[in-house]
């Protein structure tokens, strides 16, 4: 009886997990297949689930016809710098919000939460004018600054949860030893919270890496474009270049997938630490 049940449980578990995996992975598979078809073969019927002839034309075209290599480097710079700085800044603000009670604390939290509710489009026009006045249009620094600001609220909320799970005796002890509050924070608390910080960082990185609307608005020249803008560029006025787009998509997803493969345990661990307090 017990045996039967567990067999049933196992079967249903395996079935469910397999279906989830197939459904999740299939679009990735399909985009890879599309990217490996020769440009004309995309429109061949019946559809081929494995290209009769593997062609790297789409990939070669990306680097010869467009500056995709540079876009990737740009995205990497922008996303890395923005998410690093945003995580550091959020670490400080999250610490304050988690540890201390002060007038206006609720207001700060509410102000941060509110940013999540603002549809970005309301701010695009004024933001462009402001950046233009600062001479920060079409500049990586400008985009980085905006991305930092966008990452901070949620990152702070997330990190606050992690801080609340770490006893404050830790930094107290360090401060009695003569550390300043800042060095206590970084020497004692950060190492303990590393999984949580990593999770926040990855969250920021993925968001910056994928951001489209701001990048399209603020970047002009080929020199400064990031990947999402380049992707949108494959829709030209009379053609959607599915082949190039698929190839670009594959290349775009690879770095983030690599991070996940490397850090998926980290992410769950990190979130576990912060989850309960939410």
């Amino acid at each position: 009886m017990i045996d039967k049940q567990s067999i049933f449980g196992r079967v249903s578990k395996i079935t469910f997990l397999s279906i989830c995996l197939i459904v999740t992975i299939f679009p990735l598979y399909w985009i890879v297949i599309t990217s490996l078809k020769a440009p004309g073969a995309i429109y061949e019927l019946p559809l081929k689930y494995w290209p009769s002839e593997i062609s790297f034309d789409n990939y070669i075209g990306l680097f010869t016809k467009s500056d995709f290599g540079r876009y990737m480097v740009n995205s990497l710079i922008v996303a890395t710098v923005a998410s690093t700085v945003a995580t550091l800044i959020s670490l400080l603000s999250a610490y304050v919000l988690a540890r201390f009670q002060f007038a206006g604390r609720g207001a700060v939290m509410a102000a941060f939460l509110l940013t999540q509710m603002i549809p970005g489009f309301i701010a695009l026009g004024p933001l462009y004018m402001m950046m233009s006045n600062f001479d920060l249009v079409d500049s990586k620094t400008g985009l980085i600054l905006v991305y930092i600001a966008i990452c901070i609220p949620f990152c702070t909320i997330m990190l606050r949860g992690f801080f609340e799970n770490v006893p404050d005796a830790l930094e107290e002890a360090a401060m009695i030893d003569g550390c300043s509050r800042l060095s206590a924070l970084f020497r004692v608390l950060v190492p303990v919270m590393m999984p949580g910080i990593a999770a926040s960082f990855i969250f920021n990185f993925v968001n910056c890496w994928n951001e489209l609307f701001l990048s399209v608005t603020l970047m002009n020249s080929d020199e400064n474009k990031t990947i999402p803008t380049a992707l949108a560029g494959f829709i030209s006025s009379f053609n959607i270049d599915w082949g190039s787009m698929s190839a670009a998509a594959v290349l775009t997803v690879v770095p983030t997938l690599a991070i996940f493969a490397f850090a998926s345990k980290f992410i769950v661990q990190g979130l576990t630490a912060g989850a309960v307090k939410g």
Partner: peptide, 13 residues
């Protein structure tokens, strides 16, 4: 981080 920020700063358009 500061170095990368400085390097990536290409001024305005």
């Amino acid at each position: 981080v500061a170095a990368v920020l400085a390097l990536s700063g290409c001024g305005g358009g």
